[in-house]
């Protein structure tokens, strides 16, 4: 069976102080084992506010403490029309990739943030991580109880599929790379039900969309040390992290083999095909 997907897109991206606007339209055809992709040679007639990207980048720069280096900042906003068979849909996306560095302690934290527009991207995570990197002062053992902040939890979540105390759920919303509506369902191991297509140039792959951990607590205000950022991945569920105990920020290592409680979703992040971050109590 031949499957044909088409995309018309316009994106504006700020990267290395250059502002790039790119228009493109292309199609991908899957015919049995063979995947082909080519430009359509059509004009793209989509509107996009260019100023949003530059203004948002300025806001990011403004909330990074002086002692912390903004190593990378890439901000983009785009709009795209998709067509698969007889289904046609439109998506608006905004993304920010931020790499913050504490050079003296040789620590780097990367944040990938996303929403439908730059205005929808919360800067809270950049502020928290920036301030944490500025304050980090020592190494310490992992506390017996701690809560992982939603941003850090969102980056860990796809790795926690078989960890005790956590149930992963695909959240409903939008369409996948083959035009199918994304529906809510419990996620265990692959194969996943929906197709992710980040570009028309790449063969779609099965991934869970808008992944979240099933909440087990109505509110999450646990008064314990807080893991605010991941600085390295050591193994499947082992991470180098920054932890804030209220008095100091320290580097530590955590190994997640059990989650005691999960708070409600507190933000969407563009890891894979999307992940909601929640507070996780370890």
């Amino acid at each position: 069976m031949t499957e044909r997907y088409r995309k018309w897109g316009r994106v504006v991206r700020l990267e290395r102080d250059s502002l790039i606007s790119a228009d493109e339209a292309g199609e991908a055809i899957e015919d049995g084992e063979l995947f082909t992709a080519r430009p359509l040679g059509e004009n793209v007639d989509l509107q996009l506010p260019v100023g949003d990207v530059e203004a948002f980048a300025s806001e990011v720069r403004a909330c990074v403490p002086e002692s912390v280096e903004l190593e990378r900042l890439i901000v983009s906003a785009g709009v795209a029309d998709h067509e698969f068979g007889s289904v046609r849909w439109r998506e608006r996306t905004a993304r920010a990739h931020v790499a913050l560095v504490n050079r003296s302690r040789r620590l780097r934290v990367t944040l990938d943030l996303g929403a439908e527009s730059c205005a929808g991207i919360a800067l809270r995570d950049v502020r928290v991580v920036g301030e944490g990197l500025a304050r980090v002062s020592t190494h310490a053992a992992a506390p017996p109880l701690m809560v992982i902040a939603p941003y850090a939890a969102s980056a860990m979540l796809p790795m926690l599929v078989n960890v005790e105390g956590i149930t992963l759920i695909q959240s409903a919303g939008g369409r996948d790379g083959k035009g199918a509506r994304i529906e809510e369902r419990v996620i265990s191991d692959a194969p996943f039900p929906n197709w992710f297509r980040p570009s028309y140039r790449v063969r779609p792959v099965r991934l869970p969309f808008h992944l979240r951990a099933d909440a087990t607590a109505a509110a999450a205000d646990w008064p314990v040390p807080r893991v605010i950022a991941i600085t390295g991945v050591r193994g499947h569920c082992d991470f180098d992290v920054l932890c804030d105990d209220g008095e100091r920020v320290f580097e530590t290592v955590i190994a997640i083999d059990r989650v005691r409680a999960v708070g409600p979703p507190a933000g969407w992040y563009p890891h894979g095909a999307g992940v909601f971050g929640s507070e996780l109590l370890l």
Partner: peptide
């Protein structure tokens, strides 16, 4: 052959602005 792609495009850079199309 299991994958074949054609990609084409033009980027015009003026100062720090780049206008790109396929």
């Amino acid at each position: 052959a299991i994958e074949k792609r054609l990609s084409s495009g033009r980027a015009r850079q003026s100062g720090r602005s780049i206008a790109a199309s396929d």
